[in-house]
């Protein structure tokens, strides 16, 4: 989350990916860096115990959302 915020601050489009239970944490971090309302991508939880196939499926479903957020960031 912090990496994405710091990239955005220097003009590099970036996306933070946060699992759903950490939404409030992501919002708190963005607020502490003076960027309340900073948009990030929310994904289902958990991730660590998925196998490669499940992880690939999860990633494939996210591609369009990642691109959409990137386009918004750079527009």
């Amino acid at each position: 989350m912090l990496d994405a915020i710091l990239f955005e601050r220097v003009g590099v489009p970036a996306i933070a990916v946060v699992t759903e239970p950490f939404r409030a944490t992501g919002e708190a971090m963005a607020t502490s860096w003076g960027m309340p309302g900073y948009r990030f991508l929310e994904v289902p939880h958990p991730i660590a115990n998925l196998d490669d196939k499940q992880l690939d499926e999860r990633a494939d479903r996210l591609v369009e959302e990642v691109l959409d957020l990137l386009r918004r960031a750079s527009s």
């Binding site: 950490f22 409030a24 944490t25 919002e27 708190a28 971090m29 502490s32």
Partner: peptide, 10 residues
């Protein structure tokens, strides 16, 4: 230090 349970204390 902004370390509240549920937010930046997880």
């Amino acid at each position: 230090m902004q370390t509240r349970p549920g937010f930046l204390d997880r």
